[in-house]
Design a protein around this nucleic acid. Sequence first.
DNA 1: ATTACATATGAACAGATGATCATATGTTTG
DNA 2: CAAACATATGATCATCTGTTCATATGTAAT
Lengths: 118, 118
Amino acid sequence: MQDRIECCEEHCVHPEILEHVKLEMPNEEALYDLAELFKVFGDTTRIRILYVLFESEMCVCDIAELLNMSQSAISHQLRVLKQAKLVGNRREGKTIYYFLADDHVRTIIGQGMEHIEE
Amino acid sequence: MQDRIECCEEHCVHPEILEHVKLEMPNEEALYDLAELFKVFGDTTRIRILYVLFESEMCVCDIAELLNMSQSAISHQLRVLKQAKLVGNRREGKTIYYFLADDHVRTIIGQGMEHIEE
DNA sequence: ATTACATATGAACAGATGATCATATGTTTG
DNA sequence: CAAACATATGATCATCTGTTCATATGTAAT
């Protein structure tokens, strides 16, 4: 957060900063992936699933019961969470256990909580 | 992440853990607000705006030019970012400068980046 | 006051999203 | 292998989202 940029377009007093900002921007693909990742967090059902998995790994129908939702709805959302690599799973007989994939999940949700608690 | 829960519903071997998880869950309103917050991060345009503001506060039309988008589109999105308290603004004559509101933005985006870079 | 400039806002429309329902897949047991 | 169980998946539909377009608001200068 240095100098600010004067308005407007062709009147910008600091074109070198505009240029600098452009260079600092991550590439389009990374920004797209980042937005996609946050979209995954941007749904109450998925947030609740992640919270439930904070406590213990669990099978699909347990999550469904805890959240009072259909098995199908949970399964669809677990798929989304898995594609985003936020959860992993392992099979044990008929049952498939889901668990949190890594600690970024906790950090990200924790920071989000801090923000809304202000 | 302690004991796992056995399947299914009425067959759960650890009903006390199910009960424990229910008690640990934040209230519905907090979860809703949290999802709403992440929804705001879940859009490429808004992510790009936040990234641009990492470097320097900026006026609307500068952002619009940097992102190569219409003034209206940027203005609509800045409104969303402001409602989520992710950005603030101040007026200086005709111009309105937008800036990042707090450091949670950097932390959250930073963690998100770490996650997708794996 | 009139004009120009910077920004905001409302309506509208296309595209994305999430739950439901019906059904399919994969596993174990008898 | 047939039945039961746990989970996954595809289609459908109502709802939500983001951009555009036209226009409104607010400020400064002449």
